[in-house]
């Protein structure tokens, strides 16, 4: 097939994404430099400035950005802590014949309507619901359950909603670490904890990275969970952006918030990656696990001894 004819196969997708993704997002970026003219206008761009960004960073809205970042980081960390043992159990400990079933079970909530399963939590957590009355009957709490419409409920909701996105890539990563490698590690005298932390986990690192990104990025932009479980007040940037477009009709400010949200997400991912790189640096040189051809360099050794 001629080269140009082959590349042209991607042409429809290019056009579709340029017209319905790049152009509209570009327009939002353009709006974000404008302002809201009067009560009835939504946006104007005859004077360009960064004022909307300053406005979006003002104390009222800044608190929401802070809260979103807090929920995003806490939610991702909890997902990792909860999901990692489950994925390891599914990939290594569970009988191989049942693994397909377990994977299917993880996917059922993943593909149940996002809004509906969040409403399921609203029903569970309701002050007049059965969980509340059971806990009261047992005597664990005195009054009705007061979790719904708090930050705790939003955190629970996001952990629930994004947990499958953490478990699946971790499962794939653990599944790839071959059993013989772990046995070899044990044969060479390593205990099961040493084997896990020095062989299995380092090899599963791509899965950890994928899981963290798959959870953190959509979580930061979440709008549904916070609306259903966080109540009318709401405290995620997604809700703030939506309200600027739907109720306040201030498209310029809403656009600036949307752009800031993307910047915050990217900056957090970059800072997080840098931190992880720095923290694991000493471990990586010590625990370097080379599969296949060993690297011929022995330069790092003396440096390590000095550091130790």
């Amino acid at each position: 097939m001629r080269k140009s004819a082959g590349v042209a196969l991607a042409f429809p997708a290019w056009v579709w994404l340029l017209v319905f993704f790049v152009a509209p997002v570009g327009m939002v970026i353009w709006f974000s430099f404008g302002y809201k003219p009067g009560i009835f206008g939504t946006h104007a761009n005859d004077v360009l400035s960064f004022d909307r960004y300053a406005e979006a960073m003002s104390p009222t809205f800044f608190a929401t950005f802070q809260n979103t970042l807090w929920v995003g980081i806490a939610g991702t960390v909890i997902c990792l802590l909860v999901g990692l043992p489950v994925a390891y159990w599914m990939a290594v400990k569970a009988p191989p014949s049942r693994r397909g079933l377990l994977v299917a079970l993880v996917m059922v909530p993943f593909w149940t309507n996002f809004l509906v399963r969040t409403i399921g939590w609203q029903v569970i957590l309701a002050p007049e619901g059965w969980l509340s009355s059971t806990l009261q009957a047992v005597g664990l709490i005195d009054g009705p359950l007061e979790l719904l419409y708090t930050r705790g409920a939003v955190l629970l909701g996001v952990v629930y909603n994004y947990l499958p996105l953490m478990i699946l890539p971790l499962f794939v990563a653990f599944d790839r670490v071959s059993g013989p490698l772990r046995e070899a590690s044990k044969d060479l005298g390593a205990g099961k904890w040493t084997t896990f932390f020095r062989v299995t986990l380092p090899l599963a690192r791509p899965g950890v990275v994928a899981g963290v990104l798959l959870v953190f990025i959509p979580l930061m932009g979440d709008y549904i969970t916070a609306t259903v479980l966080g109540g009318a007040k709401g405290n995620m940037v997604g809700q703030l952006v939506a309200s600027q477009f739907q109720t306040a009709q201030n498209w310029a400010l809403g656009s600036a918030m949307a752009v800031l949200l993307i910047i915050v997400i990217m900056a957090t991912v970059a800072v997080g990656a840098g931190l992880v790189w720095l923290v694991t640096l000493p471990f990586r040189t010590r625990n370097r696990l080379v599969l296949g051809e060993p690297e011929p360099s022995a330069v790092s050794k003396p440096v390590e001894e000095v550091a130790a």
Binding site: F21, V25, T42, G221, W251, A258, L261
Partner: peptide
Amino acid sequence: FLGLLLLVSVTPEIVDAVALLPW
């Protein structure tokens, strides 16, 4: 092209939503 697809998949839905509305 992969870069564009990556951008599409990491952009929060709410941003797509508010961008498509005026567009």
